[in-house]
Structure formats: structure tokens, C-alpha cells
């Protein structure tokens, strides 16, 4: 590795080499992510199929393994219809606004101790700032379609995203209170210490246990943030007002790629903030990336499980849950944790 770095610096000069190396790292993150997105759609259909005693897609390739490729090819070949009177540039830029934050946020996600693209001090803050940009995709898609249904859908989805962003932000505040850092790597390392970690059962000293109410709020908020069932207003049959009503072909599928990419992102963040990231659950196993991958997988499967289980919320119930239940819970637990940290029974010393 050092030899490669030396060779590259000699060949390209230090500045150009740094840019090239960073670009290579970005590709190393984005390509597997896109592959995961493609196969997450297959996994979703398979798992929901099994839960409903069906087989799921099994025609294209062995066990239906080439199904995502076939779907992608089909969407690629479809025409992108731009509605008359639509604002063409904004209409085409809206899906990009949706997917760009879901990819850019991966810059600060640590995969292992020190294995991160940008190890910045304000990592958690960056994450909140970048994911808050995603709401533009929704608002602009609704507005630029020049359709009242799409516009109303865009307004609803934007209001939902902003409401749950507040609950999510408040739950993150509690996490950073106990870990005393905004750096995601430090947050994971802080979870590796504590009473239970000393006894060898370190999964009991991860944040999910002492911050359990906040953990629940965060898990439900990420389902609402990613527009997933049971909060998928945009896909409701009874209220036919989704923000992506007028989209077709690849432009439409970009919204879905963004949804699945942010599902994976939110699962990764939940694993890092509450489930100990790359730390192993028991002291006797070595830490490593495989633990993070396993945790992300578990959270993702629970996303699908929720989708197969719960009926869709009504819109006013969605807003009520966000504003009247989650935000008070977060604020109350913030006070509790603040007192707890200052008391002699603090578990974070």
C-alpha cells in the first residue's frame, strides 16, 4: 500500500495524486452501494414473498438473481415523459437532488476503525446537513410537474420529511451528549467502553440500551424519513398524490434508487450510533467490518419486516406521531440523560 502511494505521488505529484486517490475511494464506496441497492430490491420482494407464503421473483436467472438487472434495463429503455407546461430543467434536476445527498452522506461513515473517506470532527453535523438537502428533490419534483396532485403530494411528503428530521435531530443530540463527540468513529469507540464491556458482554453497553426510547424514536423516524411503509404516503392508493406522479422511466427509478440508498445509509447510521458499529457483540470475538455489515443487514431486514406487517398510516396520524409523540419523548429523555450523566450513577464515565 505504501509502495503504491509512493509510486502514485512520484508519477502524478502530491496534489493530483490526492485527488485521484479520493476519487478512487469514492468509486470504491459508490459501486458496492449501487450493487446493494439493486439486490436490496430483490431481497425485499423475496422476503415479503416468503412472509406471505409466495415464492417471490424466480424467473430471471437462478432463484431470480438477475431480476434487478432486468428491471434496470426495462426502466432504462422506457421513455421519460416530460409533462406539458412542466419546468423542464427543474423536473430533471429533482431526482438528482434526491439521490445526491444519499450518496454524499457516505463520506463520513466509518466502516472500520479509521477506515473512512473523510474523518472530520463534525461528522454527525455533516450528516444532518447533507440529509436535510434531500427534501428539495421532493418539493421540486412536486412543483415542476405542473400537476396539482403531484404538487399536493410534494407538499405532504416535504412536511413529513421536515417533521421527522426534527425528531431525528433531537435523538442524535442525545447520542452526542453521551458520546461527547461529533465524530462517528469516536462515537463507536465510546460505545466500546463501560461496565458491561468490561464484563465481556459489550453489546449491553452500546447506546441502544441506555438510550432505548431515543433508539425507538430514531428507528421509526428513519422509516418515515425514507418514505417507507407504513409512512409511504407517496405510494398510497387511496390518496393518489405522490410527488413522483408524473415521472417515468429512469427519472422515476432514480427516486427509488435514492429511497433504497438512503435506507442503507440510515441503517448504517443506526448501526453506528446505537448498535456499536464495527464492534463485536461479545468480548471474545475480534472487531471488524463484518459486524457492521451484519448489523446493517439486520436493520434492513427489519425495514422489510415492518413493510410486510403494518398497514399504512393516515396522513394526520403521521404528523401527530412526529410532533406530539416523538419530539416530546426526545426532549424528555434529553433531560433524563443530562441528569443521569451528572449523577453518581452515570455509566458514561
Amino acid at each position: 500500500m505504501d509502495m503504491l502511494r509512493q509510486f502514485g505521488q512520484d508519477m502524478l505529484g502530491p496534489a493530483v495524486f490526492m485527488v485521484a486517490a479520493t476519487l478512487a475511494k469514492i468509486v470504491c464506496i459508490t459501486l458496492p452501494l449501487m450493487l446493494c441497492v439493486a439486490y436490496l430490491t430483490l431481497l425485499e420482494r423475496k422476503i415479503i414473498g416468503w412472509m406471505q407464503t409466495r415464492l417471490g421473483p424466480n424467473r430471471v436467472g437462478p432463484f431470480g438473481l438477475f431480476q434487478p438487472l432486468a428491471d434496470g434495463l426495462k426502466l432504462l429503455l422506457k421513455e421519460i415523459v416530460i409533462p406539458s407546461g412542466a419546468d423542464k430543467w427543474v423536473f430533471l434536476a429533482a431526482p438528482v437532488f434526491s439521490i445526491a445527498p444519499a450518496l454524499a452522506a457516505w463520506a463520513v461513515v466509518p466502516f472500520d476503525d479509521g477506515v473512512v473517506l473523510a474523518d472530520i470532527n463534525a461528522g454527525l453535523l455533516y450528516l444532518m446537513a447533507i440529509t436535510s438537502v434531500g427534501v428539495y428533490g421532493v418539493v421540486l419534483a412536486g412543483w415542476s410537474s405542473n400537476s396539482r396532485y403531484a404538487f399536493l403530494g410534494g407538499m405532504r411528503s416535504a412536511a413529513q420529511l421536515i417533521s421527522y428530521e426534527i425528531a431525528m435531530g433531537l435523538s442524535l443530540v442525545v447520542v452526542l451528549m453521551v458520546s461527547n463527540s461529533l465524530n462517528l468513529g469516536d462515537i463507536v469507540n465510546a460505545q466500546g467502553k463501560g461496565l458491561f464491556a468490561g464484563m465481556g458482554v459489550s453489546f449491553l453497553s452500546w447506546n441502544w440500551l441506555p438510550l432505548f426510547p431515543v433508539f425507538v424514536v430514531y428507528m421509526v423516524s428513519i422509516v418515515a424519513e425514507t418514505n417507507r411503509a407504513p409512512f409511504d404516503m407517496a405510494e398510497g392508493e387511496s390518496e393518489i398524490i405522490g410527488f413522483h406522479l408524473e415521472y417515468s422511466g429512469l427519472a422515476f427509478s432514480l427516486f427509488y434508487v435514492a429511497e433504497y440508498a438512503s435506507m442503507i445509509l440510515c441503517s448504517a447510521i443506526a448501526s453506528i450510533l446505537f448498535l456499536g458499529g464495527w464492534l463485536s457483540p461479545l468480548g471474545c470475538f475480534p472487531d471488524g467490518f463484518h459486524w457492521l455489515a451484519a448489523k446493517i443487514f439486520i436493520v434492513l431486514v427489519s425495514f422489510l419486516w415492518i413493510r410486510a406487517t403494518f398497514p399504512r398510516y393516515r396522513y394526520d396520524q403521521v404528523m401527530r406521531l412526529g410532533w406530539k409523540v416523538f419530539i416530546p419523548v426526545c426532549i424528555a429523555w434529553m433531560g433524563v440523560v443530562g441528569i443521569w450523566m451528572m449523577s453518581p450513577w452515570s455509566v458514561w464515565k
Binding site: 453535523l125 444532518m128 446537513a129 447533507i130 436535510s132 438537502v133 427534501v135 428539495y136 418539493v139 421540486l140 412543483w143 407538499m155 416535504a158 421536515i162 428530521e165
Partner: peptide, 15 residues
């Protein structure tokens, strides 16, 4: 700046 002005203030402008 991004979190407050881009993430919330300009969204309200847009609304």
C-alpha cells in the same frame, strides 16, 4: 449554514 439555511429556511421560502 447548510443545515439551517439550505435545509430549512430556503425550503420554507420555496413553500
Amino acid at each position: 449554514l447548510v443545515l439551517v439555511y439550505v435545509g430549512s429556511v430556503t425550503v420554507l421560502f420555496l413553500f
